[in-house]
């Protein structure tokens, strides 16, 4: 018997173990997953319904005002308004709103988990070391692989799409927050200590403000990564701009494919310009 044959015959059951784990989790935790699916799905779909209930033009004006309020740039406000009008013109308003609410939910979750975790990592190098391979895995493991257990546990719909999005996007805010906090100049921390700051005061009054541009960059990255997942989310049944792309792919429609593709890019540009960190003053 050739050695490689022997090696092949004694296969280490990596796949079987993972399958068994998922099976056990499903058997014993089904109720929990149902609750998550129902509540998260209800909120995300509810937000989509709410956005769709409002007159589109009112939302366009609100988005324009929001862009102006955040960035004080007439050009950006115009870009947002024109972009949204283009989306209405192309007939993708409903899908855009569904995608927006999915991105909003996954981004809020990613930031809520990512920023505290990033802070913890910056303060505890051991934790950062332990988390490092996990974060690498989350970003490099092909999405379709963890889509399968997600489907088993959460069924078809918005929630598995959101879970996949979160798994892919959450490393960004964790890493950026960690880097931002770790790069706060030692002299600023010492200034805080020298004037009697507690650990909490140093975090809130020195570390977080100093790391804010990096955290904001993490937010922007998180949004962009979420947006890049819309097509995959559509594959497992989440609504939004991925749906027409998938449909165009299945029916080989060049025109519909490019239309929805452009809308996704446009949405990405608008969100990026509104959320990216301001150029820091010299």
């Amino acid at each position: 018997m050739a050695p490689e044959q022997w090696i092949a015959e004694h296969k280490i059951p990596v796949g079987a173990v993972m399958a068994a784990v998922v099976d056990v989790v499903r058997k014993h935790g089904l109720a929990v997953f149902d609750v998550i699916t129902d509540s998260v799905g209800f909120c995300a779909d509810g937000l989509t319904t709410l956005l769709l209930a409002l007159p589109p033009l009112l939302l366009v004006v609100a988005a324009m005002a929001g862009a102006w309020f955040l960035r004080r740039s007439a050009g950006l406000a115009a870009l947002v308004a024109l972009g949204l009008l283009f989306i209405i013109n192309q007939g993708y308003w409903n899908e855009t709103m569904a995608t927006l609410s999915l991105i909003l939910f996954s981004t809020v979750f990613c930031m809520a988990v990512g920023v505290p975790l990033g802070i913890a990592c910056a303060h505890r190098p051991r934790l950062a070391q332990a988390l490092q391979p996990l974060l690498d895995l989350m970003q490099t493991l092909p999405t379709f692989v963890y889509l399968i257990p997600t489907l088993i546990l959460f069924g078809l719909g918005t929630v598995p799409g959101m879970i996949s999005t979160i798994i892919f996007a959450v490393p960004a805010p964790i890493r950026m927050t960690q880097m931002g906090i770790a790069r706060v100049p030692r002299s600023l921390i010492e200034a805080g200590e020298a004037f009697g700051a507690t650990g909490r005061q140093i975090l809130w009054k020195i570390e977080l403000p100093a790391a804010l541009p990096m955290i904001q960059a993490g937010l922007t990255q998180c949004i962009m990564l979420s947006l890049s997942m819309v097509v995959i989310a559509a594959l497992v049944g989440a609504g939004g701009l991925g749906v027409p792309v998938v449909r165009a792919l299945n029916t080989v429609q060049v025109d519909a494919g490019f239309e929805s593709g452009f809308v996704i890019v446009l949405l990405a540009i608008m969100l990026d310009r509104v959320c990216r960190p301001k150029d820091s003053a010299s």
């Binding site: 002299s187 600023l188 010492e190 200034a191 200590e193 020298a194 004037f195 009697g196 700051a197 507690t198 009054k205 020195i206 403000p209 100093a210 804010l212």
Partner: peptide, 21 residues
């Protein structure tokens, strides 16, 4: 220690140590 640092001992740094924001 914190009470002393808040009320009795203040410090001035070479690189100023001011909060730029």
């Amino acid at each position: 220690l914190r009470t002393l640092r808040k009320t009795r001992i203040a410090m001035v740094f070479q690189q100023f140590g001011l909060l730029p924001w």
